[in-house]
Design a protein around this nucleic acid. Structure first.
Length: 287
DNA sequence: CTGCGGTGGTCGTGTTGATA
DNA sequence: TATCAACACGACCACCGCAG
């Protein structure tokens, strides 16, 4: 399955949408370098669409995202009356298409500026049968109805919000692998680490609590988050310490203790390694 | 004087690769 | 998914120097 991986923020931006009906024999137009993403959602009938060498049969309840950098065309005419919504959107951030979605997070693609607005990957299936087609139908209908009022700021904001909901729906309809035991294991481990980051939680304890072998947990986390439990815990502790550095005037030693470090010098070393500046320098940025 | 950062050495734990 | 062995490196301690 081809997955489209967007780096957000910036969020995907809605441009326009519309509703079309094809009679039998009509086919989707051929286009090259459209410059925007084109989301198609079929209500009734079926669209036969090609994109480069890939072929799609987009049936009722299915959605297909056509890429802005590819040539797409109607493979054949519709066999029956076909109703569908189209929706154009764009992104000003980076994106990529991957055939095998490893679902990995990129912890290092940090746009971590002072206030740590971290970017994260948003993965959408290029072609999918929606889990809640009725909801998609409703959202697209609302978007379509807002079109005459698109000159009003309030309507434009509403359009963007509805579109984000649609994006959420698409993301939630991904293949069941995203709910695999490995992913669940990694997520539970991460949740446990986040809730107990002040304590000395070992991978053995993690294994006991989750009823999995520690090595297995570490591998799941490596696959899902791109880092080991230890590294995950360290990053989370540093994030928490950054908040305390900004919000309090506690000594570095106290903050180190507060976020789970027994030794303040060691905390400073870790902080410098991850952030590139010392805790003191970080605090000075805000004073 | 106090608080902080840097360095070097040591120990133990976690990670990795291979395998079942 | 689990186990084992080897190895890497995280975590800690002690000490020193610097800056406010």
């Amino acid at each position: 399955m081809t997955m489209l991986v967007f780096t957000v923020p910036p969020l995907l931006q809605y441009i326009a949408c519309g509703h079309s009906i094809f009679d039998p024999g009509e086919r989707h137009m051929s286009r090259r370098n459209l410059h925007v993403f084109d989301l198609l959602f079929v209500q009734k009938g079926c669209l036969y669409i090609g994109e480069e060498e890939r072929r799609y049969e987009v049936g009722p309840g299915c959605a297909l995202v056509l890429r802005p950098d590819c040539f797409h065309y109607g493979l054949e005419g519709c066999r029956e009356r076909t109703e569908y919504y189209w929706l154009h959107f764009q992104t000003s951030g980076p994106w990529t298409a991957a055939d095998d979605d490893a679902g990995e997070l990129h912890p290092d693609n940090a746009a971590d500026e002072l206030f740590d607005v971290r970017s994260f990957p948003l993965t959408l299936p290029q072609f999918v049968r929606l889990a809640k087609p009725a909801k998609a139908d409703e959202l697209l209908g609302q978007l379509d109805q807002l079109h005459p009022n698109a000159h009003l700021s309030a309507a434009r904001l509403k359009q963007q919000l509805l579109f984000q909901e649609l994006v959420q729906l698409l993301a939630a309809s991904q293949d069941s692998r995203r709910n695999s035991p490995g992913r669940a294991c990694a997520e539970r481990a991460a949740a446990l680490l986040r809730s107990r980051y002040r304590e000395d939680i070992t991978v053995r304890e993690l294994g006991k609590r989750l009823s999995f072998h520690p090595v297995y947990i570490a591998r799941c986390m490596q696959r899902e988050y791109g880092c080991t439990p230890r590294e995950y815990l360290l990053r989370y502790r540093i994030e928490q310490s950054k908040l305390l550095l900004m919000q309090t005037d506690w000594t570095i030693a106290r903050i180190a203790e507060e976020v789970g470090f027994r030794q303040a010098p060691y905390f400073s070393t870790c902080f410098s390694r991850l952030e590139g500046i010392t805790p003191r320098e970080y605090r000075q940025l805000f004073h």
